[in-house]
Design a protein around this nucleic acid. Structure first.
Lengths: 190, 190
DNA sequence: CAATAATTTGACCGATCGGTTAAATATGTA
DNA sequence: TACATATTTAACCGATCGGTCAAATTATTG
Protein backbone atom coordinates (compact mmCIF):
# COMPACT_ATOMS: atom_id res chain seq x y z
CA UNK A 1 0.00 0.00 0.00
CA UNK A 2 2.90 2.32 0.60
CA UNK A 3 6.64 2.69 0.47
CA UNK A 4 8.70 0.85 3.05
CA UNK A 5 11.97 1.78 4.70
CA UNK A 6 14.78 0.72 2.44
CA UNK A 7 17.50 0.20 5.02
CA UNK A 8 17.99 -2.36 7.75
CA UNK A 9 17.00 -0.69 10.99
CA UNK A 10 19.06 -3.00 13.19
CA UNK A 11 22.11 -2.48 11.03
CA UNK A 12 21.79 1.29 11.34
CA UNK A 13 21.48 1.09 15.11
CA UNK A 14 24.63 -1.01 15.17
CA UNK A 15 26.50 1.53 13.09
CA UNK A 16 25.26 4.44 15.19
CA UNK A 17 26.14 2.53 18.35
CA UNK A 18 29.73 2.19 17.27
CA UNK A 19 30.04 5.93 16.68
CA UNK A 20 28.48 6.76 20.03
CA UNK A 21 30.71 4.17 21.66
CA UNK A 22 33.80 5.77 20.16
CA UNK A 23 32.93 9.44 20.57
CA UNK A 24 30.35 9.63 23.33
CA UNK A 25 26.91 11.18 23.08
CA UNK A 26 27.83 14.86 22.97
CA UNK A 27 30.95 14.08 20.95
CA UNK A 28 28.87 12.52 18.19
CA UNK A 29 27.29 14.92 15.71
CA UNK A 30 24.41 14.30 13.34
CA UNK A 31 27.05 14.61 10.64
CA UNK A 32 28.91 11.64 12.19
CA UNK A 33 25.71 9.64 12.31
CA UNK A 34 24.85 10.47 8.70
CA UNK A 35 28.30 9.38 7.54
CA UNK A 36 28.36 6.17 9.56
CA UNK A 37 24.87 5.08 8.61
CA UNK A 38 24.86 6.46 5.09
CA UNK A 39 21.44 7.93 5.79
CA UNK A 40 20.33 11.49 5.26
CA UNK A 41 19.45 13.55 8.30
CA UNK A 42 15.76 13.55 7.49
CA UNK A 43 15.70 9.76 7.26
CA UNK A 44 17.32 9.44 10.65
CA UNK A 45 14.77 11.77 12.21
CA UNK A 46 11.95 10.08 10.36
CA UNK A 47 12.97 6.66 11.60
CA UNK A 48 14.53 7.35 14.98
CA UNK A 49 12.81 10.54 16.14
CA UNK A 50 15.85 12.30 17.59
CA UNK A 51 19.51 11.96 18.41
CA UNK A 52 18.54 11.29 22.00
CA UNK A 53 16.14 8.52 21.10
CA UNK A 54 18.62 6.95 18.71
CA UNK A 55 21.19 6.93 21.49
CA UNK A 56 18.69 5.27 23.78
CA UNK A 57 18.21 2.53 21.20
CA UNK A 58 21.98 2.19 20.91
CA UNK A 59 22.37 1.91 24.67
CA UNK A 60 19.73 -0.81 24.75
CA UNK A 61 21.35 -2.62 21.88
CA UNK A 62 24.71 -2.46 23.61
CA UNK A 63 23.21 -3.80 26.82
CA UNK A 64 21.46 -6.51 24.89
CA UNK A 65 24.75 -7.54 23.30
CA UNK A 66 26.39 -7.50 26.72
CA UNK A 67 23.68 -9.71 28.15
CA UNK A 68 24.78 -12.50 25.85
CA UNK A 69 28.11 -12.44 27.71
CA UNK A 70 26.47 -12.71 31.10
CA UNK A 71 26.91 -15.73 33.29
CA UNK A 72 24.19 -18.33 32.99
CA UNK A 73 25.58 -21.73 33.87
CA UNK A 74 28.79 -23.67 33.95
CA UNK A 75 32.00 -23.14 35.90
CA UNK A 76 31.81 -19.66 37.47
CA UNK A 77 35.57 -19.62 37.96
CA UNK A 78 36.17 -20.20 34.28
CA UNK A 79 33.63 -17.54 33.47
CA UNK A 80 35.46 -14.99 35.62
CA UNK A 81 38.80 -15.88 34.10
CA UNK A 82 37.44 -15.47 30.60
CA UNK A 83 35.61 -12.31 31.58
CA UNK A 84 38.73 -10.57 32.83
CA UNK A 85 40.93 -12.02 30.10
CA UNK A 86 38.62 -10.43 27.58
CA UNK A 87 38.67 -7.10 29.38
CA UNK A 88 42.45 -7.05 29.47
CA UNK A 89 42.80 -8.25 25.90
CA UNK A 90 40.50 -5.57 24.57
CA UNK A 91 42.04 -3.03 26.91
CA UNK A 92 45.57 -3.39 25.58
CA UNK A 93 44.41 -3.28 21.96
CA UNK A 94 45.60 0.06 20.64
CA UNK A 95 42.59 0.32 18.36
CA UNK A 96 40.21 -0.20 21.23
CA UNK A 97 39.76 3.10 23.03
CA UNK A 98 36.07 2.75 23.62
CA UNK A 99 35.80 1.40 27.14
CA UNK A 100 32.27 0.31 27.98
CA UNK A 101 29.41 2.29 26.48
CA UNK A 102 27.30 1.95 29.61
CA UNK A 103 30.07 3.03 31.97
CA UNK A 104 31.10 5.81 29.60
CA UNK A 105 27.53 7.03 29.57
CA UNK A 106 27.20 6.89 33.35
CA UNK A 107 30.26 9.11 33.52
CA UNK A 108 29.24 11.44 30.69
CA UNK A 109 25.75 12.02 32.10
CA UNK A 110 26.72 12.14 35.76
CA UNK A 111 25.32 15.31 37.21
CA UNK A 112 22.03 15.31 35.41
CA UNK A 113 19.05 13.07 36.02
CA UNK A 114 17.54 13.06 32.58
CA UNK A 115 16.45 10.03 30.64
CA UNK A 116 19.85 9.10 29.23
CA UNK A 117 21.51 9.29 32.62
CA UNK A 118 18.82 7.24 34.30
CA UNK A 119 18.93 4.61 31.57
CA UNK A 120 22.71 4.31 31.73
CA UNK A 121 22.62 3.81 35.49
CA UNK A 122 19.94 1.17 35.19
CA UNK A 123 22.03 -0.73 32.65
CA UNK A 124 25.05 -0.43 34.93
CA UNK A 125 23.20 -2.36 37.60
CA UNK A 126 22.75 -5.20 35.10
CA UNK A 127 26.53 -5.62 35.05
CA UNK A 128 26.54 -5.51 38.83
CA UNK A 129 23.87 -8.20 39.00
CA UNK A 130 25.78 -10.39 36.58
CA UNK A 131 28.92 -10.25 38.68
CA UNK A 132 26.95 -10.96 41.83
CA UNK A 133 25.41 -14.01 40.17
CA UNK A 134 28.86 -15.34 39.33
CA UNK A 135 30.09 -14.77 42.85
CA UNK A 136 27.05 -16.54 44.29
CA UNK A 137 27.48 -19.46 41.94
CA UNK A 138 31.16 -19.72 42.81
CA UNK A 139 30.75 -19.69 46.57
CA UNK A 140 27.52 -21.66 46.48
CA UNK A 141 26.14 -20.38 49.82
CA UNK A 142 29.44 -20.97 51.60
CA UNK A 143 29.60 -17.20 52.10
CA UNK A 144 27.14 -14.85 53.74
CA UNK A 145 25.10 -12.32 51.79
CA UNK A 146 27.25 -9.48 53.08
CA UNK A 147 30.43 -11.29 52.10
CA UNK A 148 29.05 -11.86 48.62
CA UNK A 149 28.12 -8.22 48.39
CA UNK A 150 31.66 -7.18 49.19
CA UNK A 151 33.06 -9.48 46.56
CA UNK A 152 30.54 -8.11 44.10
CA UNK A 153 31.80 -4.58 44.79
CA UNK A 154 35.37 -5.68 44.23
CA UNK A 155 34.43 -7.31 40.93
CA UNK A 156 32.52 -4.27 39.73
CA UNK A 157 35.32 -1.91 40.69
CA UNK A 158 37.89 -4.11 38.96
CA UNK A 159 35.84 -4.34 35.77
CA UNK A 160 35.22 -0.62 35.82
CA UNK A 161 38.90 0.17 36.39
CA UNK A 162 40.13 -2.08 33.62
CA UNK A 163 37.55 -0.89 31.10
CA UNK A 164 38.00 2.81 31.78
CA UNK A 165 41.69 3.08 32.66
CA UNK A 166 42.55 1.05 29.57
CA UNK A 167 41.11 3.87 27.49
CA UNK A 168 44.17 5.95 28.21
CA UNK A 169 46.70 3.56 29.78
CA UNK A 170 47.49 0.61 27.57
CA UNK A 171 49.72 -1.13 30.11
CA UNK A 172 49.12 -4.86 30.16
CA UNK A 173 50.87 -5.52 33.48
CA UNK A 174 48.78 -2.81 35.06
CA UNK A 175 45.47 -4.19 33.81
CA UNK A 176 46.43 -7.78 34.58
CA UNK A 177 47.28 -6.83 38.15
CA UNK A 178 43.85 -5.28 38.68
CA UNK A 179 42.27 -8.49 37.41
CA UNK A 180 44.54 -10.79 39.41
CA UNK A 181 43.96 -8.83 42.57
CA UNK A 182 40.25 -9.53 42.48
CA UNK A 183 40.65 -13.06 41.09
CA UNK A 184 42.76 -13.80 44.18
CA UNK A 185 39.52 -13.99 46.14
CA UNK A 186 38.59 -16.92 43.92
CA UNK A 187 42.06 -18.49 44.09
CA UNK A 188 42.40 -17.71 40.42
CA UNK A 189 44.78 -15.88 38.12
CA UNK A 190 44.46 -14.65 34.59
CA UNK B 1 53.79 53.52 31.47
CA UNK B 2 50.75 51.54 30.56
CA UNK B 3 47.60 49.96 31.87
CA UNK B 4 47.82 46.78 33.91
CA UNK B 5 45.41 43.91 34.04
CA UNK B 6 42.70 44.68 36.58
CA UNK B 7 41.77 41.20 37.74
CA UNK B 8 43.58 38.57 39.76
CA UNK B 9 44.93 36.06 37.30
CA UNK B 10 45.19 33.24 39.84
CA UNK B 11 41.64 33.84 40.97
CA UNK B 12 40.36 33.62 37.40
CA UNK B 13 42.22 30.37 36.81
CA UNK B 14 40.62 28.99 39.96
CA UNK B 15 37.17 29.97 38.77
CA UNK B 16 37.74 28.56 35.30
CA UNK B 17 39.16 25.38 36.83
CA UNK B 18 35.96 24.79 38.75
CA UNK B 19 33.85 25.09 35.62
CA UNK B 20 36.10 22.74 33.67
CA UNK B 21 36.09 20.36 36.62
CA UNK B 22 32.31 20.32 36.69
CA UNK B 23 31.55 20.24 32.98
CA UNK B 24 34.66 18.88 31.28
CA UNK B 25 36.64 20.59 28.53
CA UNK B 26 34.25 20.18 25.63
CA UNK B 27 31.28 20.66 27.92
CA UNK B 28 32.51 24.08 28.96
CA UNK B 29 31.73 26.94 26.59
CA UNK B 30 33.37 30.34 26.39
CA UNK B 31 30.03 31.61 27.65
CA UNK B 32 30.45 29.49 30.80
CA UNK B 33 33.96 30.82 31.28
CA UNK B 34 32.83 34.42 30.81
CA UNK B 35 30.06 33.99 33.36
CA UNK B 36 32.22 32.23 35.94
CA UNK B 37 35.14 34.63 35.68
CA UNK B 38 33.12 37.77 35.03
CA UNK B 39 35.51 38.59 32.20
CA UNK B 40 34.62 39.48 28.64
CA UNK B 41 35.65 37.08 25.93
CA UNK B 42 38.32 39.40 24.57
CA UNK B 43 39.92 39.73 27.99
CA UNK B 44 40.11 35.99 28.36
CA UNK B 45 41.78 35.63 24.98
CA UNK B 46 44.04 38.57 25.68
CA UNK B 47 45.21 37.10 28.96
CA UNK B 48 45.01 33.36 28.39
CA UNK B 49 45.47 33.00 24.62
CA UNK B 50 42.84 30.32 24.01
CA UNK B 51 40.36 27.99 25.66
CA UNK B 52 42.89 25.21 25.26
CA UNK B 53 45.68 27.14 26.93
CA UNK B 54 43.39 28.23 29.77
CA UNK B 55 42.45 24.62 30.33
CA UNK B 56 46.12 23.70 30.43
CA UNK B 57 46.67 26.30 33.13
CA UNK B 58 43.67 24.92 35.02
CA UNK B 59 45.02 21.38 34.78
CA UNK B 60 48.34 22.52 36.14
CA UNK B 61 46.67 24.45 38.92
CA UNK B 62 44.61 21.40 39.83
CA UNK B 63 47.70 19.22 39.88
CA UNK B 64 49.52 21.78 41.95
CA UNK B 65 46.69 21.79 44.48
CA UNK B 66 46.73 17.99 44.50
CA UNK B 67 50.45 17.96 45.15
CA UNK B 68 49.86 19.62 48.49
CA UNK B 69 47.91 16.49 49.45
CA UNK B 70 50.73 14.17 48.46
CA UNK B 71 52.59 12.08 50.99
CA UNK B 72 55.80 13.60 52.27
CA UNK B 73 56.51 12.29 55.74
CA UNK B 74 54.79 10.86 58.78
CA UNK B 75 52.78 7.71 59.25
CA UNK B 76 52.04 6.29 55.78
CA UNK B 77 49.20 4.18 57.19
CA UNK B 78 47.49 7.26 58.57
CA UNK B 79 48.04 9.02 55.29
CA UNK B 80 46.32 6.22 53.37
CA UNK B 81 43.40 6.13 55.78
CA UNK B 82 42.90 9.87 55.45
CA UNK B 83 43.39 9.73 51.71
CA UNK B 84 40.63 7.19 51.20
CA UNK B 85 38.39 8.72 53.84
CA UNK B 86 38.53 11.95 51.94
CA UNK B 87 37.76 10.24 48.63
CA UNK B 88 34.74 8.49 50.11
CA UNK B 89 33.54 11.57 51.95
CA UNK B 90 33.69 13.70 48.83
CA UNK B 91 32.28 10.88 46.76
CA UNK B 92 29.05 10.54 48.73
CA UNK B 93 28.49 14.30 48.79
CA UNK B 94 25.52 14.89 46.49
CA UNK B 95 26.91 18.24 45.46
CA UNK B 96 30.21 16.71 44.46
CA UNK B 97 29.84 15.22 40.99
CA UNK B 98 33.21 16.30 39.72
CA UNK B 99 35.43 13.30 40.22
CA UNK B 100 39.10 14.09 39.63
CA UNK B 101 39.91 16.65 36.96
CA UNK B 102 43.03 14.77 35.89
CA UNK B 103 41.28 11.42 35.62
CA UNK B 104 38.27 13.02 33.95
CA UNK B 105 40.60 14.59 31.41
CA UNK B 106 42.45 11.34 30.76
CA UNK B 107 39.09 9.79 29.96
CA UNK B 108 37.75 12.71 27.94
CA UNK B 109 40.85 12.96 25.77
CA UNK B 110 41.51 9.25 25.43
CA UNK B 111 41.83 8.46 21.76
CA UNK B 112 43.74 11.53 20.74
CA UNK B 113 47.36 12.34 21.45
CA UNK B 114 47.20 16.10 21.44
CA UNK B 115 48.62 18.39 24.06
CA UNK B 116 45.72 18.19 26.52
CA UNK B 117 45.67 14.42 26.42
CA UNK B 118 49.41 14.15 26.90
CA UNK B 119 49.38 16.61 29.78
CA UNK B 120 46.53 14.82 31.54
CA UNK B 121 48.33 11.50 31.30
CA UNK B 122 51.53 13.00 32.67
CA UNK B 123 49.66 14.42 35.64
CA UNK B 124 48.01 11.05 36.20
CA UNK B 125 51.42 9.51 36.72
CA UNK B 126 52.02 12.01 39.52
CA UNK B 127 49.15 10.41 41.43
CA UNK B 128 50.62 7.01 40.69
CA UNK B 129 54.01 8.09 42.01
CA UNK B 130 52.47 9.49 45.16
CA UNK B 131 50.72 6.22 45.95
CA UNK B 132 53.88 4.28 45.24
CA UNK B 133 55.79 6.51 47.64
CA UNK B 134 53.28 5.80 50.38
CA UNK B 135 53.46 2.07 49.76
CA UNK B 136 57.24 2.17 49.88
CA UNK B 137 57.23 4.17 53.08
CA UNK B 138 54.74 1.79 54.65
CA UNK B 139 56.59 -1.41 53.83
CA UNK B 140 59.99 0.12 54.28
CA UNK B 141 61.91 -2.30 52.02
CA UNK B 142 60.22 -5.34 53.57
CA UNK B 143 58.66 -5.94 50.17
CA UNK B 144 60.25 -6.41 46.76
CA UNK B 145 59.98 -3.83 44.00
CA UNK B 146 57.53 -5.99 42.09
CA UNK B 147 55.38 -6.46 45.18
CA UNK B 148 55.34 -2.72 45.74
CA UNK B 149 54.42 -2.20 42.13
CA UNK B 150 51.43 -4.50 42.49
CA UNK B 151 50.25 -2.68 45.56
CA UNK B 152 50.68 0.59 43.73
CA UNK B 153 48.40 -0.65 40.96
CA UNK B 154 45.79 -1.70 43.49
CA UNK B 155 45.92 1.71 45.13
CA UNK B 156 45.64 3.56 41.83
CA UNK B 157 42.74 1.41 40.67
CA UNK B 158 40.94 1.89 43.99
CA UNK B 159 41.41 5.66 43.93
CA UNK B 160 40.29 5.80 40.32
CA UNK B 161 37.22 3.66 40.99
CA UNK B 162 36.10 5.66 43.99
CA UNK B 163 36.63 9.01 42.31
CA UNK B 164 34.92 8.12 39.06
CA UNK B 165 32.19 5.71 40.15
CA UNK B 166 31.14 8.17 42.85
CA UNK B 167 30.22 10.60 40.09
CA UNK B 168 27.14 8.55 39.33
CA UNK B 169 26.78 6.10 42.23
CA UNK B 170 26.56 7.80 45.58
CA UNK B 171 26.56 4.60 47.60
CA UNK B 172 28.70 4.91 50.70
CA UNK B 173 28.93 1.17 51.44
CA UNK B 174 30.06 0.60 47.89
CA UNK B 175 32.81 3.20 48.00
CA UNK B 176 33.92 2.18 51.49
CA UNK B 177 34.27 -1.42 50.37
CA UNK B 178 36.56 -0.41 47.50
CA UNK B 179 38.71 1.48 49.97
CA UNK B 180 38.71 -1.25 52.60
CA UNK B 181 39.59 -3.89 50.06
CA UNK B 182 42.84 -2.16 49.21
CA UNK B 183 43.51 -1.01 52.78
CA UNK B 184 43.38 -4.69 53.77
CA UNK B 185 46.86 -5.04 52.31
CA UNK B 186 48.03 -2.57 54.94
CA UNK B 187 45.99 -4.20 57.73
CA UNK B 188 43.88 -1.05 57.79
CA UNK B 189 40.25 -0.08 57.49
CA UNK B 190 38.54 3.18 56.85
C1' DC C 1 48.27 67.19 32.02
C1' DA C 2 49.37 64.84 27.91
C1' DA C 3 51.31 61.03 25.57
C1' DT C 4 51.72 56.19 25.49
C1' DA C 5 50.61 51.54 25.72
C1' DA C 6 48.12 48.31 27.53
C1' DT C 7 43.39 46.21 28.68
C1' DT C 8 38.47 45.99 28.06
C1' DT C 9 34.43 45.91 25.44
C1' DG C 10 30.96 44.24 22.30
C1' DA C 11 30.00 43.60 17.74
C1' DC C 12 31.16 40.44 14.45
C1' DC C 13 33.12 36.09 11.97
C1' DG C 14 32.46 31.55 9.62
C1' DA C 15 31.52 26.96 11.10
C1' DT C 16 28.82 23.76 13.20
C1' DC C 17 25.19 22.27 16.26
C1' DG C 18 20.45 19.53 16.46
C1' DG C 19 16.36 19.81 14.17
C1' DT C 20 12.49 21.04 10.57
C1' DT C 21 10.15 21.14 6.30
C1' DA C 22 8.49 20.82 1.73
C1' DA C 23 9.24 18.91 -2.45
C1' DA C 24 10.84 14.87 -4.94
C1' DT C 25 10.77 10.05 -5.20
C1' DA C 26 9.57 5.35 -4.73
C1' DT C 27 6.53 1.46 -3.34
C1' DG C 28 2.42 -1.44 -2.66
C1' DT C 29 -2.49 -1.87 -3.68
C1' DA C 30 -6.62 -1.40 -6.31
C1' DT D 1 -1.43 1.99 -14.64
C1' DA D 2 -2.89 5.26 -11.39
C1' DC D 3 -3.68 6.36 -6.74
C1' DA D 4 -2.37 6.66 -1.98
C1' DT D 5 1.04 6.79 1.31
C1' DA D 6 5.28 6.39 2.83
C1' DT D 7 10.39 7.52 2.65
C1' DT D 8 14.15 10.21 0.97
C1' DT D 9 16.43 14.32 -0.16
C1' DA D 10 18.53 18.74 0.46
C1' DA D 11 17.77 23.28 1.48
C1' DC D 12 16.97 25.80 5.40
C1' DC D 13 16.26 27.23 10.52
C1' DG D 14 17.83 29.72 14.78
C1' DA D 15 21.20 28.92 18.26
C1' DT D 16 25.63 28.34 19.71
C1' DC D 17 30.40 27.18 19.04
C1' DG D 18 35.51 29.11 19.55
C1' DG D 19 37.76 32.97 18.06
C1' DT D 20 38.91 37.90 16.11
C1' DC D 21 39.15 42.78 15.90
C1' DA D 22 38.73 47.68 16.05
C1' DA D 23 37.20 51.07 18.92
C1' DA D 24 36.70 52.68 23.60
C1' DT D 25 38.67 52.96 27.96
C1' DT D 26 42.05 53.25 31.50
C1' DA D 27 46.40 53.27 34.07
C1' DT D 28 51.08 54.61 34.06
C1' DT D 29 55.03 57.51 33.01
C1' DG D 30 57.40 61.73 31.32
Amino acid sequence: MTRTTDFDRDEMIDKAMNVFWNKGYEGTSMRDLMESTGLQKGSIYNSFESKENLFLLCLERYASNSRSFHYKEGDPGMYLQNFFRRLVKEGVDKKFVKGCLVMNSCLEFSGDEKILSRKAKILFTATEKNLRNVAEAFFNSSKSTSEIKKIQVNLVAAAFSIREISKFKKDKDFLVQIANNVLKEFNLRI
